[in-house]
Simulated assay, not measured.
Amino acid sequence: MSTMALASLFSPGRLGAVLAKEFVQMRRDRITFAMMLVVPIVQLLLFGYAINNDPKGLPAAVLALGQDRYTRSVVAALEVSGYYRFAKRPESAAEAQSLMARGAISFLVTIPSDFGMRVERGDEPRILVEADATDPAASSNAVGALQTIASRALTRALGTEELKREQSESALSFVIHRRYNPEGITQYNIVPGLLGVILQMTMVMMTAMALTREIERGTMENLLAMPATPGEIMLGKVLPYLAVGSIQVAVVLSAAKLLFGVPFLGSLGLLLTSVTIFVLALVLLGYTISTMARTQLQAMQLTFFFFLPSLLLSGFMFPYAGMPLWAQWLGEIFPLTHFLRVVRAIMLKGADLGDIGLEVFYLSIFVPLYAGIALLRFRSTLD
């Protein structure tokens, strides 16, 4: 085959020109190029540092009705173990129950007033431990370590060999009460959370692609020519997706009740109000993303970039309390984190507005925040 024939089949010069063109295109598409670099780094950091299947430092409260040395020894041993962090010291049982209903604590350890006397008599000393079992994975290891931790502490606290022998005949026992999900059914935790995940995945992406689709098709010019303000255009774009979100909510809640038997203990009105706020925040977030993207591909990439850390840091896939403090602070900036607390508290705990009012308030902040950013970035003319 002649040299000219080979050149017609393959030319290093032509290949080099195509490669140069592609590198120039990649340099111009800064969002795609940044995604290729940032997403692997984010995944490594989150999975390497933030995710922990054996959560430690879980928020707990102790209701000690006695102040003897055995009580102090058991509480100290539980805290030193690393599983429990006694940040709350309620003064009454009612205050302790309110803390658990609000989700402020994961465990409530109640030590009776006659605990020390029972230890010295070898009369089956018992401690009540109430665990928030709405997330069984978060509490299982901590509950499993209770017996070993406290028994060793009690043995060290006994003063004489005779008392140690008496204690061996009547060991310390725990009464474990798994609140809100006594059977430890995983679906009770996952299915309400799926409501937030499904809404976030669909609402943000569909809304984000709505405006970029207008730009790609050239119909954005018609919208800009209309005597409509940026706020009116934004509302016209996002309100239809509230109707789509309501259909998804009805489907998920019906499936949760009929297929999975998830209990529904709270107010339906409070739940629907919270869902409406959450969906409105999501569609405004999607609209904000659409003001940053120039193509539907970029809109999808930005949506994925938001969705990944939100899913991992919200407490849906991994226990929120088991993450390091910096990861918990980062998780607070995502609407899904607050919505999961609200929906699980309403459905599984029967929480009222007094219990979850702060979380609903935090969720509401995202609505004006995203709306303001979207309006500031809205392009009144095409570039």
Results as ranks from 00 to 15, higher is better:
residue 21 K to N: 10
residue 160 T to F: 06
residue 315 G to S: 06
residue 78 L to V: 12
residue 302 L to N: 00
residue 140 S to E: 14
residue 80 V to D: 03
residue 175 V to A: 08
residue 73 S to C: 08
residue 152 R to W: 00
residue 174 F to E: 03
residue 250 A to K: 10
residue 332 E to K: 13
residue 259 L to C: 03
residue 7 A to M: 15
residue 333 I to Y: 00
residue 246 S to W: 10
residue 315 G to Y: 11
residue 189 N to D: 13
residue 70 Y to T: 08
residue 358 L to H: 15
residue 233 I to T: 05
residue 148 T to R: 11
residue 245 G to I: 04
residue 246 S to C: 13
residue 85 R to D: 15
residue 23 F to V: 11
residue 382 L to A: 07
residue 197 V to H: 05
residue 227 P to Q: 13
residue 134 T to D: 07
residue 189 N to G: 14
residue 3 T to R: 14
residue 364 S to L: 10
residue 3 T to N: 13
residue 63 L to V: 11
residue 98 S to I: 00
residue 131 A to Y: 06
residue 8 S to H: 06
residue 224 L to I: 00
residue 274 S to I: 02
residue 298 Q to D: 02
residue 102 R to S: 13
residue 222 N to D: 01
residue 3 T to K: 10
residue 131 A to V: 09
residue 338 H to R: 09
residue 174 F to S: 05
residue 294 R to H: 11
residue 27 R to N: 12
residue 344 R to D: 02
residue 365 I to A: 08
residue 182 P to N: 11
residue 129 V to T: 07
residue 88 K to T: 04
residue 176 I to F: 03
residue 365 I to R: 00
residue 154 L to I: 07
residue 345 A to T: 11
residue 319 P to T: 12
residue 336 L to W: 15
residue 295 T to C: 01
residue 185 I to Q: 13
residue 8 S to F: 03
residue 126 R to Y: 01
residue 141 N to S: 09
residue 116 G to C: 13
residue 275 V to G: 12
residue 76 A to G: 15
residue 264 F to E: 06
residue 331 G to E: 13
residue 105 I to M: 10
residue 240 P to I: 00
residue 285 L to K: 02
residue 372 G to H: 04
residue 295 T to H: 06
residue 102 R to M: 07
residue 120 E to C: 02
residue 88 K to M: 11
residue 72 R to C: 05
residue 293 A to K: 00
residue 355 D to K: 10
residue 25 Q to P: 03
residue 225 A to V: 01
residue 268 L to H: 10
residue 102 R to L: 04
residue 190 I to Y: 09
residue 243 A to E: 00
residue 142 A to I: 09
residue 71 T to S: 14
residue 49 Y to I: 05
residue 286 G to A: 07
residue 219 T to M: 01
residue 72 R to T: 08
residue 297 L to I: 06
residue 381 T to Q: 12
residue 274 S to F: 08
residue 266 G to F: 07
residue 46 L to P: 08
residue 232 E to T: 12
residue 231 G to D: 03
residue 327 A to E: 13
residue 64 A to Q: 14
residue 38 V to T: 02
residue 298 Q to A: 04
residue 336 L to P: 12
residue 154 L to V: 06
residue 138 A to T: 03
residue 127 I to R: 01
residue 305 F to K: 08
residue 320 Y to P: 04
residue 239 L to V: 11
residue 37 L to W: 14
residue 246 S to F: 07
residue 96 A to G: 03
residue 299 A to C: 08
residue 291 T to R: 05
residue 215 I to P: 00
